[in-house]
Amino acid sequence: MIYNRIKILRTEKGLSRKELADAVGVNFQTIGYLERGDYNASLELAFKLAEYFEVPIDMAFSPRPFKSLAEELTENRRAAE
């Protein structure tokens, strides 16, 4: 199982599933099932999505569950201190 942050990244950009799907050249259902975790993206699609959102690929996809935003912010603050 590969976890992803596609839904958060898409929502941040204010896009619908259809708009994002058109931008990366797939149909809306691929994005939908990807967001739900019912489908694992191909390597090509994973790179396309990371490129589209301008984030490193490991920020969008991970083999382990992502930490929540609150946890990450706390960790970053501790690291900065």
């Binding site: 619908s16 939908g32 099932y33 739900r36």
Partner: peptide, 8 residues
């Protein structure tokens, strides 16, 4: 397969 919408 599960039902899906193009919106959220």
């Amino acid at each position: 397969i599960k039902p899906l919408s193009s919106r959220n």
